[in-house]
Amino acid sequence: MGLIRLILNVIWLFVAGLWLALGYALAGLICCILIVTIPWGIASFRMANYALWPFGRKLVRRREAGAMSTIGNVVWIIFAGWWLVLGHIASAVGLAVTIVGIPMAWANLKLIPVAIAPLGNEIVDSDDPGEAWRP
């Protein structure tokens, strides 16, 4: 399954991953420059990393994440999360039009949970070999 993940990630990189990662990294840079929004900047860098190479990785909630991350996520949803989700859905629909694009559409849908609530989560390697195909 490692070869399939590698192939999917390389295709993803050229189809959408590089541009998504650059966009998230730019957002992270802007958030870090504004100082007050540094937590969202760090989360944006995490999202950029995930958007660059999503197959074989998954999002998990950190146990120590508390109320502050929930409040931060609510603020994020109001200002950025909802339009990021709409962009991922639109992109997934566009990618799903072709048979080759279906796994790429799943990867786009897989990014929605981190795009809507980036604080209090972390990206980990998936132990499940079939995880490359699931959102």
Rank of each mutant, 00 (worst) to 15 (best):
L84Q: 01
I123D: 09
W12Q: 02
D125W: 06
A51T: 03
N73V: 06
I77M: 12
W76F: 13
F55W: 06
I102T: 00
I116Y: 12
L18Q: 06
I35Y: 10
L8D: 04
R46A: 13
L109K: 00
L29T: 14
I78G: 08
G87F: 01
L111P: 01
V60M: 14
P113L: 12
Y50S: 00
H88Q: 13
G2Q: 14
A48G: 02
D127L: 15
E122Y: 04
G2N: 15
L29K: 08
W19G: 12
I77Q: 06
V10K: 14
I38N: 13
I89T: 06
L34A: 13
P129S: 05
L59A: 09
I123V: 15
C32Y: 04
R61F: 06
G120R: 09
A65T: 03
G66N: 05
L119G: 03
W53V: 04
A65V: 07
S44K: 02
G101P: 02
V124Y: 06
G94P: 00
W106G: 07
R62K: 15
L111V: 04
I116V: 12
P39T: 08
L95Q: 01
G56H: 03
G66L: 04
L6W: 15
N73R: 08
A107D: 01
A132L: 10
W133K: 05
P103W: 00
A21M: 13
R5D: 08
L18R: 15
L111Q: 10
I38M: 11
T98E: 04
P103Q: 08
I35P: 10
N49K: 08
L109N: 00
W40S: 11
R5Q: 15
G72N: 11
A107V: 12
A107C: 10
L26R: 14
Y24R: 09
R134E: 12
I38R: 11
W76E: 01
A92S: 10
G41A: 12
L22E: 03
L95E: 00
G120V: 10
I35K: 04
G41N: 06
N49M: 11
G72S: 08
W40T: 13
